[in-house]
């Protein structure tokens, strides 16, 4: 295994009955890099994500995540919530899954659940208002404030998350994932439904996260302005198999990729 590799997927296969959604897929995602998974509709991109985050158990394959401490987590063997809690892999969803009835700030506080649970001695100390819990809560609030400021929602902190416009909800979901302090951030079509200005801002946010937090980002995207501008590494899937891999420019020139996208140039893909 490569030493600087953060996520290592080997021979991943996922079948649903007779249908192979993913077939013998291997790829790496490195620390401090943005890795994009692209491919036509139905290529199996979201299935890969669901295998990584424990929502599906793959039939064959190994998914290992190396934590900064050097410990290796085998994700395919872990329960969904442990992947987020212990291996510290955070994700967002294609169709946004915020806690819509709760306020924006509460969404960010729920993301820091495990930290705050420990600080409140699993609610016992918190119930009696211990000072150590209050300090931990204060720190959590400051982290939430930092992210609210970063995604431009500081003035909406106490609004219900469901009342935000679509683009803000996307940004909030990314901020919520970041509040879990991840080592790998998995974004499922973060630019879907955004206008050109918003997706340009999203590029800035993702580059910012990469440089400031030094974490790996894995993203599925159809919007080529996002993929080509910010990715360090691109993996192209078609029919559940990897058909190309490399830098954005190399992938763009790859004949297999052009073929998969039905002859259209990669700059104007069929979405």
């Amino acid at each position: 295994m490569m030493t600087d590799s953060l996520l290592c997927v080997e021979h991943l296969t996922m079948r649903f009955g007779g249908l192979s959604a993913i077939n013998d897929l291997s790829f790496h995602a490195k620390k401090n890099q943005i890795t994009a998974i692209i491919g036509p509709n139905g290529a199996g991109k979201t299935t890969v994500f669901n295998c990584l985050t424990g929502f599906y158990k793959p039939n064959v394959g190994k998914i290992s995540l190396t934590s900064p401490s050097g410990r290796i987590f085998l994700l395919e063997r872990m329960e969904g919530f442990r992947i987020a809690k212990e291996a510290r892999l955070a994700r967002t969803f294609q169709n946004i899954r915020l806690f819509t009835g709760m306020s924006v700030l509460e969404n960010l506080m729920v993301a820091q659940h495990n930290l705050l649970m420990r600080a409140s001695l699993y609610s016992l100390a918190g119930l009696f208002g211990s000072s150590s819990f209050r300090r931990a809560e204060q720190r959590a609030l400051e982290l939430a404030r930092y992210w609210l400021n970063k995604i431009g929602l500081l003035d909406y902190a106490d609004q219900p998350a469901g009342s935000l416009p679509y683009g803000s909800q996307r940004r909030l979901e990314i901020a919520r994932a970041m509040c879990t302090d991840p080592v790998l951030l998995c974004l499922d079509e973060p630019a879907a439904g955004l206008n050109p200005k918003e997706s340009y801002d999203l590029n800035g946010l993702l580059l910012d996260i990469r440089s400031e937090f030094q974490i790996g980002i894995l993203l599925i995207e159809h919007d080529m302005s996002v993929v080509m501008n910010i990715s360090d590494h691109v993996v192209v899937l078609d029919h559940g198999a990897r058909i190309a891999e490399g830098s954005p420019t190399a992938v763009q020139a790859d004949p297999a990729v052009i073929h998969a996208y039905l002859g259209t140039a990669p700059e104007e893909p069929t979405c």
Binding site: F81, L98, S120
Partner: peptide
Amino acid sequence: LPIGRAWEALREDETACRSLGID
């Protein structure tokens, strides 16, 4: 407290809760 907020979050969306590391 965090546990109370987790209850409400669970009511809103269990899948999202799991993805945030809540048991």
